[in-house]
Simulated assay, not measured.
Amino acid sequence: MKARHTVLVIDDEPHIRRLIVATLTRADYNAVEAANAREALDRLRTERPDVALLDLGLPDRDGLELVPLIKQQSGTTLIVVSARDATDEKVAALDLGADDYLTKPFDTDELLARVRVALRNRITRDGGELALTVEDVTIDLLARTVVKGGKPVHLTPKELAVLEQLARFPSRVITHRQIMAHVWPKEHEHHVEYLRALVRSLRQKIETDPQRPRIINNELGIGYRLCVPSEGT
């Protein structure tokens, strides 16, 4: 099973939202809607989108005011999609932290291309890799697929979310708290037992010998590490 990237569509015009949501859904994204600034900030907290598409002409708040708030409150990549085509508006949005700017009316193919670029940049901006191979397992973070020995591996969305966190920074210890905040973003209380159960299930699916794991290593009392052999070993 492939876990879909989530894109938040923030626009007060219903027909524009429907167009964008339909375009994203056909491209296999999970599209979430917000009709105003209040809803947008709420969706950011509950949905943790990978990318946000922001219209500047919102009814309850100017979209430019939202740009720094979105960047400060989340790691979401932000693309402004607005009818405001003046150069100073574009510069202002980018200076405030927007990652890209697309002017309405737009071509839907171009919109999807901008989203794909945003996702690639999101993965690589902190030094992460788009894809990596460990033992006989290949993890593609952009496509969100896992292949072992040339055959696709079926992972649940939560299993994939755990593996994604580890694969973004191979050989680095990722703490229990960091992983759980990513996998269960809507829950106020996390239980490490749930995470351990997910890791056990993951090892059954990707390790050659789950009892002697070579891919996902446990750092006792701290977290987990995706082990990537260094060059020459």
Rank of each mutant, 00 (worst) to 15 (best):
residue 5 H to M: 13
residue 130 L to N: 13
residue 168 R to S: 07
residue 175 T to I: 12
residue 57 G to L: 13
residue 207 E to N: 08
residue 59 P to R: 04
residue 161 A to S: 15
residue 189 E to D: 05
residue 114 R to F: 05
residue 109 D to K: 13
residue 128 G to T: 06
residue 124 T to F: 03
residue 13 E to C: 05
residue 206 I to S: 07
residue 207 E to H: 09
residue 170 P to C: 09
residue 182 H to K: 15
residue 57 G to M: 14
residue 147 V to S: 03
residue 14 P to Q: 11
residue 125 R to E: 13
residue 231 E to C: 01
residue 63 G to S: 12
residue 126 D to Q: 09
residue 67 V to Y: 02
residue 59 P to S: 10
residue 98 A to V: 07
residue 126 D to E: 14
residue 138 T to I: 07
residue 115 V to P: 02
residue 216 I to G: 03
residue 2 K to V: 15
residue 117 V to C: 03
residue 44 L to N: 07
residue 14 P to E: 14
residue 43 R to Y: 04
residue 133 T to I: 03
residue 9 V to S: 09
residue 28 D to Y: 01
residue 153 V to W: 00
residue 213 P to V: 11
residue 66 L to A: 11
residue 22 A to H: 14
residue 125 R to L: 08
residue 10 I to W: 04
residue 27 A to E: 12
residue 16 I to C: 02
residue 91 V to K: 07
residue 194 Y to N: 13
residue 2 K to D: 09
residue 140 D to V: 09
residue 131 A to R: 11
residue 131 A to N: 04
residue 225 R to V: 14
residue 28 D to T: 15
residue 202 L to V: 07
residue 100 D to Y: 00
residue 179 I to M: 04
residue 158 K to F: 05
residue 6 T to V: 15
residue 83 A to F: 00
residue 209 D to W: 03
residue 5 H to T: 14
residue 167 A to T: 11
residue 125 R to I: 12
residue 117 V to K: 04
residue 6 T to P: 11
residue 63 G to A: 11
residue 104 K to F: 01
residue 217 N to W: 00
residue 31 A to C: 04
residue 208 T to D: 13
residue 111 L to P: 04
residue 67 V to C: 05
residue 189 E to K: 08
residue 81 V to P: 00
residue 215 I to D: 01
residue 121 N to M: 07
residue 25 T to S: 15
residue 52 A to P: 13
residue 209 D to T: 11
residue 62 D to H: 14
residue 90 K to C: 09
residue 98 A to I: 04
residue 3 A to D: 07
residue 105 P to F: 00
residue 144 R to E: 09
residue 77 T to S: 12
residue 190 H to N: 09
residue 145 T to H: 02
residue 193 E to K: 14
residue 55 D to Q: 06
residue 196 R to N: 15
residue 209 D to N: 15
residue 104 K to Y: 00
residue 231 E to H: 09
residue 1 M to W: 02
residue 37 A to P: 06
residue 70 I to K: 08
residue 140 D to R: 05
residue 161 A to E: 14
residue 22 A to Y: 12
residue 3 A to R: 14
residue 215 I to C: 00
residue 211 Q to W: 01
residue 218 N to H: 13
residue 230 S to K: 10
residue 79 I to C: 01
residue 195 L to R: 05
residue 202 L to Q: 05
residue 41 L to Y: 11
residue 63 G to H: 08
residue 35 A to C: 12
residue 211 Q to A: 14
residue 142 L to Y: 11
residue 99 D to T: 06
residue 48 R to S: 13
residue 198 L to D: 02
residue 58 L to C: 10
residue 77 T to E: 13
residue 33 E to H: 08
residue 49 P to A: 10
residue 129 E to F: 04
residue 228 V to N: 01
residue 212 R to M: 03
residue 40 A to N: 10
residue 79 I to D: 03
residue 117 V to E: 08
residue 17 R to D: 05
residue 158 K to D: 14
residue 140 D to T: 10
residue 73 Q to R: 14
residue 158 K to C: 01
residue 113 A to R: 04
residue 211 Q to P: 00
residue 126 D to A: 12
residue 36 N to Q: 15
residue 186 K to T: 15
residue 150 G to R: 08
residue 195 L to A: 05
residue 173 V to N: 09
residue 144 R to C: 07
